[in-house]
């Protein structure tokens, strides 16, 4: 149990392995490896070709009427796509509203429950490693698989409703059939999959809090709650700011689960902005308008992140 090594990585064993090389190795072998630029070139090329150029292309396409299924109608239309989006497309605004509720609900639930879970798993108890492994398992599950699993649970003939009816209660529980409940059913399924990530991130930082701080707090007679409030939370604040931001961005963009679980329905009640984009791109092959929506999403995300980080930084300076 006490394999406490101070260095993050053991140093001793491999140091010996590097000795006694052949002499000619001193010659300039593998010149390609000599500079940092050679090393980062592959990454730069890949990122340029498959991320930077596509981002530019999206900007370019957003100025066109461009539908892959109607190639003859392709033409430059300036900012018309954006005009349509802002003034003539109620679906855009409703998808924005749904996206915000989705992101806020997921991040808040995952933060609160993830913090609780991390606190629990940070304690020492029998079988902790096993419990940890089990609890983190949904992290590795894809959105589609989560959908498949939760479909069984939400389906009236195979899931909760069926279990209830066997117990004698007629519940009529069919959460995916109605707009409001379908949304929250999706929130719970996503929570199931997203919770481990939050717990892992917070747990990793909790383990780096020095032990003696708690000892000092204990000597001063601080209760467990006060230790949490005045020791644990301040230490975790950076981690919480970064993790919530990453998670917000991730949940904003997350479409796998919604696309497969509800498909955006019923009646658009779960169509977030990215899901709307995917429906335009994959379903309607409407690349011009889809690109304009994409840019809207990207700008919103960017502005949100900057504001969030700005306030995160500002409050940090204040507390110092």
């Amino acid at each position: 149990m006490t394999s406490t090594i101070l260095a993050k990585t053991p140093v001793a064993p491999a140091a010996a392995a590097g000795g006694s090389p052949p002499r000619q190795a001193r010659k300039r072998r593998g010149r390609w490896f000599r500079g940092p630029y050679g090393l980062i070139t592959p990454a730069i090329v890949l990122i340029t070709v498959f991320i930077a150029v596509p981002v530019g292309t999206v900007v370019y396409f957003s100025l066109f009427q461009y539908n892959l299924s109607k190639p003859w109608a392709t033409k430059f239309i300036g900012l018309d796509n954006f005009h349509t989006m802002l003034f003539d497309d109620p679906q855009f605004w409703s998808s924005l509203g749904i996206t915000s509720v989705w992101v806020v609900a997921e991040v808040v639930l995952q933060l609160v429950l993830g913090l609780a879970l991390a606190l629990l798993l940070n304690r020492v108890f029998r079988g902790r490693a096993l419990v940890r492994a089990l609890m983190f398992a949904p992290w590795a599950i894809s959105g589609v698989l989560a959908t498949q699993i939760w479909l069984l649970i939400y389906n009236p003939t195979t899931g909760i409703a069926d279990v209830l009816s066997q117990l004698g209660a007629q519940s009529g529980f069919a959460p995916l059939a109605a707009g409001g409940s379908a949304f929250w059913a999706a929130v719970i399924a996503e929570l199931w999959r997203g919770l481990p990530f939050f717990a892992i991130m917070l747990l990793a930082d909790m383990q780096s809090i020095p032990k003696d701080v708690y000892e000092a707090a204990d000597v001063d007679g601080a209760s467990a709650f006060k230790q949490f409030r005045y020791v644990t939370l301040p230490y975790l604040r950076e981690a919480i700011i970064i993790t919530t931001l990453l998670r917000a961005v991730w949940e904003f963009n997350n479409v796998d689960l919604l696309y497969t679980l509800t498909g955006g329905g019923p009646a658009g009640a779960t169509t977030t902005l990215p899901l709307y984009i995917v429906n335009e791109a994959v379903g309607a092959r409407n690349f011009g308008y889809g690109s304009a929506l994409t840019i809207a999403g990207f700008v919103i995300l960017l502005v949100f992140s900057m504001i969030y980080l700005y306030f995160g930084r500002a409050s940090r300076k204040e507390s110092k």
Partner: peptide, 25 residues
Amino acid sequence: MTALASPPALNRRPTRERAPGETRS
């Protein structure tokens, strides 16, 4: 169970054990 709780890895980060205030379980 104890074997699971402490895999014999060299590279583990130090796990904090029984810090005050979190011993009750």
